[in-house]
């Protein structure tokens, strides 16, 4: 890797509601930013299945490329259909968390 490259080699598949938190919700994107992780945003739970399914496939396709190259990948929050989409690309067993607080999420990220 180029010496000037600043990537963190850590990527989180993160639920939409943690990227776009409600008032007083957990700001997952801010936690990732502070911990030096990148984000792959999962489709909003508000999208109909016919919109979410192709987006989940694209998430899985990109995730496989990161796991194949040894990046640390984790799931934060998850989404219905994600496990099946990842399995179709041979990806399973990623560490995951349903964070109940920002502190818990920060500890999880630090432990990976």
């Amino acid at each position: 890797m180029d010496a000037g490259d600043a990537r963190g080699y850590r990527v989180a598949l993160i639920a939409d509601e943690l990227v776009n938190p409600a008032a007083r919700g957990i700001d997952g994107l801010a936690a990732l930013e502070a911990a030096g992780w990148g984000a792959i945003q999962l489709p909003s739970g508000d999208y109909p299945d016919e919109v979410a399914a192709p987006l989940l496939e694209l998430v899985a396709e990109q995730t496989e490329e990161f796991t194949r190259h040894g990046y640390t990948v984790a799931v934060i929050g998850g989404r219905a259909g994600l496990d099946e989409a990842l399995a179709a690309y041979g990806v399973s067993g990623l560490p995951s968390i349903e964070p109940r607080s920002t502190a818990a999420l920060t500890r999880f990220l630090a432990a990976q």
Binding site: M1, D2, R7, R10, G38, F66, Y71
Partner: peptide
């Protein structure tokens, strides 16, 4: 812009976001 890990070598400006 949310994941600088996706850049090609030498292109990442920051660790992630």
């Amino acid at each position: 812009l949310l994941n600088q890990n996706s850049k090609c070598s030498g292109g990442a400006r920051c660790p992630g976001v």
